[in-house]
Write a protein that binds this DNA or RNA. Structure first.
Lengths: 350, 350
DNA sequence: TTGTACGCGTTATCAC
DNA sequence: GTGATAACGCGTACAA
């Protein structure tokens, strides 16, 4: 094994005493090579390690790769805002590599909106589609259509089971429920009463919330702790302000030591905490502005950061590396479950 | 402003009615261009946005960039182990971009070892040096020498002040002390007694530990909490096992509610915790194997993750992007202060 | 079955 | 001053 670093096709051709074309035919198994030449080239290839130069490859191959992203509108829910930053960043970084990104934006409260955007995107036949599978059934069907149309399929934020997806990036939601449970356990000791709150505009996040709930409950069961846990669904009613619904709810329940909010809406709860109420500890999700404000003022104890920006950035990077450099796509990747308190949030915000 | 995306020099030449060479001279300000041609080219450049193609650039420019890394031996302290993974990963990813990495390994307990490695590295005049400035004075002097020799200088893990460094990546240590303080505050309430432990083989980490201590104390002062805080330095004595020193220490102090270990040596403490002792809460630093073991068994409450792997990976990436694509180097960058408990550590370990 | 020549975009050199 | 041309490494079309 020689030690020189990067061999080119030209190098190999010289070493084997044949021409570049022959080497190329051997490497790409195009045939039309005499057994003698084949042997000579293979002999060289065995001794050295040949890796094609990805730079030269992508310079030559000035194909445009179209990647589409199906994601929710950020006006409806600021949780999605960082995703748009990630897209912009990727566009800047990879515009010269022939990467084009097209956004398909849908209303997170409307299944029809999702389906419609999905159809528009699919009609343009991009090379890959990255989507947030908020609506499970629709997303799964759509994923199947894409796979059939030979479009690479990736998801973030949620997972899809029972359907082959090329790349799935997100957080282990069950485990994040356990993380919250552990935090309460440390803060409250061996005995306490807790409430799990699924607060959402609509219930499109149902499976999302349930996985968290399950992880949360499982923790206490496994540790055999004397925790009393009740579960509530709070949904925005047609003409009633959300605040009113929550206020009413808080007055109606028997006081608890801790509240676990499985969505990014913990701030709605914190908003309603008055002096009169017994001030339970709140653990919620996501670094949206209003949550951070309450975290900084100790009205929220902890937030779990799902880092949607990183999810998008990573997903796109993986897809791009697949197209440009032929790196394999891992099927699924779980990102860290970041625990955030009033002292460490700033570094997560850039 | 036209809408076509990436203009090449050839495009510009055609639009301006001159040759590629002339356009090149205008763009690179090499002179030798008639005022008429200059005007024509500038007119085109004003209307479109020209960004040179970094791929073609680096294909042509097949220069090798040598980057040297001065970092501690991982045998002495497993904390550094992940850094070596990061280096390997970078080598794989960028070998085709002409990036060569050379390691200069030193003993973290020996100033001479550092100086010697530094000299060897400097003698080879790499394009950039990334180092861990464990020994402040020596590192600062060395940094000055590098800057004078026109070598790009980067640091990770610790910061250097009063000396211009091109890139500094690390964690805000003062703030990480505050994070630990906040965690104790949440676990222990408004009144408690704590001990800060600086446990180290030697004291090369002095400034490191002191910044954490300062942040920790500052938190309680600012919040005006009734916390009693004592500080201890525990150092490995020549012929006495560290365990014995720590055991003795634990028996000698008045019991406290919490122990804050400012180094990665919290496991040494946890090892000595017996049933008889009152079991104070321990918060320490770093995901080394022994710490994680205690974390998983609830002998350590929290660990703060400094992510040395990410620090190295990011530092090297920034340097490489500077060389290959001319991206500017930010002077300093603070990474997130990750809070780790028994439920979320696995995702941080890959 | 082979070798050669061309083009991708940039840069540097060399005639004109 | 200027424009044509070679070179970086790869893939491929085409000629031998």
């Amino acid at each position: 094994m020689l030690m020189k670093k990067n061999y080119t096709i030209k190098d190999i051709a010289e070493l084997a005493g044949v021409s570049k074309g022959t080497v190329d035919r051997v490497i790409h198994k195009r045939g039309k090579v005499s057994s003698k030449a084949l042997e000579q080239v293979n002999k060289v290839l065995d001794q050295i390690e040949y890796k094609p130069n990805p730079i030269a490859k992508s310079l030559k191959n000035n194909k445009v790769y179209n990647i589409a992203i199906l994601l929710p509108d950020a006006d409806n829910d600021p949780y999605w805002l960082p995703c748009y930053d990630a897209i912009k960043q990727i566009e800047n970084e990879f515009s010269h590599f022939g990467i084009k990104i097209k956004k398909g934006i849908f209303n997170p409260q409307s299944t029809e909106s999702f389906t419609k955007s999905a159809e528009i995107i699919l009609a343009e036949k991009p090379d890959a589609i990255l989507m947030v599978p908020l609506f499970y059934k629709e997303a799964k069907d759509f994923a199947k259509n894409c796979v059939d149309a030979n479009i690479k399929m990736a998801t973030f934020n949620n997972y899809i089971k029972d359907q082959k997806i090329d790349l799935q990036i997100g957080q282990d939601l069950f485990q994040s429920g356990r993380v919250a449970a552990k935090l309460f356990n440390m803060l409250l000791g061996t005995k306490a009463s807790l409430a799990i709150l699924h607060i959402d505009e609509a219930f499109q996040n149902a499976s999302h919330m349930q996985e968290k709930e399950l992880g949360f409950k499982t923790y206490y069961l496994q540790k055999e702790l004397d925790y009393d846990i009740s579960v509530y669904n709070l949904k925005k009613e047609a003409k009633i302000p959300f605040k009113k619904t929550i206020d009413h709810f808080l007055k109606s329940i028997t006081p608890v030591d801790g509240l676990f909010v499985t969505t990014s809406k913990a701030y709605l709860l914190a908003n309603c905490m008055t002096e009169s109420f017994s001030k339970p500890l709140i653990i919620g999700y996501d670094l949206v502005a209003e949550n951070i404000d309450h975290l900084a003022h100790d009205k929220i104890a902890f937030l779990i950061h799902q880092d949607p920006k990183k999810q998008v950035y990573l997903s796109l990077t993986k897809l791009i590396e697949y197209f440009l450099f032929g790196k394999p796509l891992q099927e699924s990747l779980s990102l860290p479950i970041d625990i955030i308190n009033s002292e460490n949030y700033p570094q997560y915000l850039k």
